[in-house]
Design a protein around this nucleic acid. Structure first.
Length: 763
DNA sequence: AGCACGCCGACT
DNA sequence: GTCGGCGTGCTC
């Protein structure tokens, strides 16, 4: 019996999945006239307006701020023990605060949809039982004329506790039909019960979330570990540094060039925690959760139960994976963005791989968070190390390392005898160019093919050509719903908008003047076609979202290249993410210039990261790689710096620029993003929001409102108002005061809007 | 977000 | 005569 928990605390403060930026108080559920002891982190059912909804207890309170007499009573318990431990609950409240988002939606984001709707924390099994009437009928030999029902009823009547559906599946395939008939007669019924094996762990009498399952033995992993390579000196010292710092919070920035063996460092650190009986969480970018990475952990820890969480799971699979995590069965949890909220008990280490990757930032929908940043906050709250790894760290993380908040660990050399690739710029102004390929590039491709190498051609644009233009009047095919041109997809015979998905047939003459139309510019499809012409007989593979829609197709293309069946690979960003092509000796970057003159201050950083990541695909085997970057601005300081001093040199200059311009990480940003069906409505809302700010503190600036670079998308007009401050605290105090007034604006009703704290893309 | 309540147009 | 448009208000 709980001695004093319920004595002074008479109210439950709960989070409800609604956009309202507040929590709600309820009277606790009563059972036999006594209040049920609620624990923060438990899900309960409460009446909310006219509905009944699932809520999560956030805290226990002795008095409410709610108006007198408005309190209602919770209607049911869902959990016998919390689904969030205090540390995870604290992380979620911190996130709601930091991202200025409705706490209910933040907590909802940490639960799989089915758990949000009340699915039990432990899997239930379907059991069939004979009713008393059924037993009597069975004894009387009924049902005489239905042999299948008779047989099933006999089986159910014979089993004192009934039969699991899975048992029946195995015994007699067609049993469900008979079962339905028996249920209709009232002779049998189905029940949902916890799985027998789970009951012990899920029993509400447990002392804590870990009781009954925590006995994961310390010491060498049962069943041993898979084969591990010798560590290079640089890897060993990285591992040693983390180990020496002990099992407390420390943030490490593992800056390892491509091929330097970052994953091996993760594996060693993970092994150490697993051997201590603790669990490990590994976060990877959306597209980076390749079967290869999972396979690598599986090969090293063959007997360690894993859970994998990513966006490709069905709701049922996601719930099952979440259960594996929360009941402590999974000791190694690998997942994408939202896995930062995975309820891993007794967590000993967090790894964020490719920490610079933009997919860690949720940038649409309601709750916009950075999983990488939250991983650091979570590690700090838990007092465990966090390792952020990348070949091209974000300037934010580099800055944190320079400021001493993170400790940088470098892996500057490639493993084994692989040489770093040589980078060279091709000045497009002095070249003859066919279909986007300079003659120098073509010559280099020829040379590498003749030398039995493979070639990777990177172009950040899918489709055949980005524009369809009239040869006579200058008309270009526009998208009806976006401020964008439609992309030519020649083999499909379609024009497609890459922003809204509009799709229509490819016209063969200009709708305006009737003359011939012509694709202008290059995409992967056209480059592939042109290479096929130039290098007749050489097998070519293409890698972009048009060719690869599923993981299996990706594997197929990767296999064709890895096996050498394809000699040239043409692809978009997709080629930069973690695939190993050891025989690629030449990489050609077709259009490096997009990032050089963008209005977005982060464009240069992204370009440098892409170039370095693509370049990293070259020469990973024992042959040196060559990287050619085509540009019209070979003297541009960013490109020149990148070539002369590598990514470190680039980063140093870029940070210096950010400092003098006052951009992040030397200031803090929040973007108020809005969209509506007309440009006026969008801008009016933002203008009203700006007025509502009144006089702003000296350390803070409001910039805008300004239409987005691609203002109209899918028929909606987008714009933003930027809030900038050199002081994080000033920014957040302002947002705390400002947002409620923005919310109350009449214009806010007619506009779709969201606040994006630490935005990555500025349109 | 949902889900009500509340006043003004085209239809079973 | 009603069904229904979305403006406004509220959710402990």
């Amino acid at each position: 019996v709980d001695k004093d928990a319920a004595v002074t605390t008479t109210l439950w403060r709960v989070a409800i999945d609604t956009p309202l930026r507040r929590l709600f108080d309820y009277l606790p559920l009563e059972q036999d006239g006594a209040p049920v002891p609620g624990v923060p982190g438990m899900r309960v059912r409460v009446p909310f307006g006219r509905r009944s909804v699932v809520a999560v207890i956030v805290s226990l309170e002795s008095e409410s701020t709610a108006p007198e007499g408005r309190l209602r009573r919770a209607s049911a318990m869902i959990d016998a023990q919390p689904v969030f431990d205090p540390a995870l609950l604290a992380l979620l409240t911190w996130a709601a605060d930091y991202y200025h988002h409705a706490p209910g939606e933040v907590i909802a984001a940490a639960l799989p949809r089915l758990a949000r709707e009340g699915a039990p924390r432990t899997a239930l099994t379907e059991w069939w039982l004979a009713t008393a009437a059924g037993r009597a009928q069975h004894a009387a030999g009924e049902p005489r004329r239905a042999p299948r029902q008779r047989e099933l009823l006999g089986r159910l009547a014979a089993a004192a506790t009934g039969c699991a559906a899975t048992e029946l599946d195995a015994a007699s395939p067609g049993w469900r039909e008979a079962a339905r008939a028996l249920a209709g007669r009232g002779w049998a019924l189905a029940q949902q019960q916890p799985e027998p094996g789970m009951t012990a762990a899920a029993a509400p009498t447990d002392a804590g979330p870990d009781a009954g399952l925590a006995a994961t033995p310390a010491g060498p992993l049962a069943g041993g570990v898979g084969p591990a390579p010798e560590l290079a000196a640089q890897q060993q010292s990285a591992v040693d540094a983390v180990v020496a710092a002990g099992d407390r919070f420390h943030a490490w920035l593992l800056h390892g060039i491509t091929g330097s063996g970052k994953t091996e460092v993760y594996l060693r650190l993970a092994q150490r925690q697993l051997e201590r009986g603790r669990r490990v969480l590994v976060l990877v970018p959306e597209i980076g959760l390749t079967p290869q990475l999972v396979a690598r952990f599986a090969a090293r820890f063959p007997t360690v139960p894993r859970a994998v969480l990513h966006s490709g799971l069905t709701d049922t699979q996601r719930l099952a994976a979440w259960r594996e995590v929360i009941d402590g069965h999974a000791r190694l949890v690998l997942g994408t963005r939202s896995a930062v909220f995975a309820p891993v008990p007794d967590l000993g280490l967090i790894v964020v791989d490719e920490e610079h990757d933009a997919s860690f930032k949720q940038h649409d929908g309601g709750f916009r968070y950075s999983a990488r940043d939250l991983a650091v906050v979570r590690a700090q709250a838990l007092g465990v190390p966090v390792v952020l790894g990348s070949a091209t760290p974000s300037l934010e993380s580099l800055h944190n390392a320079l400021a001493g908040r993170y400790t940088r660990l470098s892996l500057p050399r490639r493993a084994a005898h692989a040489q770093p690739p040589r980078l060279r710029l091709i000045d497009l102004r002095g070249e003859s160019v066919h279909a986007g390929l300079s003659s120098t590039a073509v010559g280099a491709i020829e040379r590498h093919l003749a030398d039995a190498g493979q070639v990777l051609v990177y172009i950040n644009r899918r489709g055949y050509a980005p524009t369809l233009a009239c040869t006579a009047c200058g008309w270009v095919a526009p998208c009806a719903d976006c401020d964008a041109r439609m992309t030519v997809h020649l083999s499909a015979g379609r024009l497609r908008c890459h922003h809204c998905g509009a799709d229509r047939p490819l016209p063969n003459q200009c709708p305006q003047c009737g003359y011939a139309v012509r694709p202008v510019g290059q995409g992967t499809e056209r480059v592939e076609a042109s290479l096929a012409e130039t290098f007749a007989g050489v097998p070519i593979a293409r890698l972009d979202r048009d060719v690869v829609r599923h993981a299996a197709e990706l594997e197929a293309v990767v296999d064709r290249v890895a096996s050498g069946a394809a000699r040239i690979l043409v692809g978009t960003q997709m080629v930069t993410k973690g695939h190993d092509f050891p025989n690629v000796t030449l990489v050609v970057v077709l259009n490096a210039d997009h990032g050089l003159f963008s209005t977005d201050f982060r464009a240069a950083e992204r370009l440098a990261q892409t170039i370095v990541q693509v370049a990293g695909r070259a020469g990973r085997g024992d042959r040196p790689g060559e990287v050619l970057i085509q540009t019209e601005y070979p003297e541009h300081p960013l490109l020149a710096g990148l070539l002369a001093e590598g990514f470190d040199g680039f980063a140093e200059r870029a940070l210096e620029e950010r400092r003098s311009a006052g951009w992040p990480p030397f200031s803090r940003l929040a973007a108020l993003r809005a969209s509506a069906t007309t440009a006026e409505a969008t801008l009016e809302f933002l203008a009203a929001a700006r007025r509502a700010a009144g006089h702003v503190p000296a350390a803070l600036r409001l910039l805008g409102p300004a239409p987005a670079a691609l203002a109209r998308r899918a028929g909606r007009h987008h714009a933003q108002l930027l809030v900038e401050s050199t002081e994080r605290a000033v920014l957040h105090r302002f947002l705390d005061r400002w947002l409620p007034t923005v919310e109350a604006l009449p214009e806010a009703r007619r506009t779709r809007w969201a606040l994006d704290v630490d935005p990555l893309e500025l349109f």
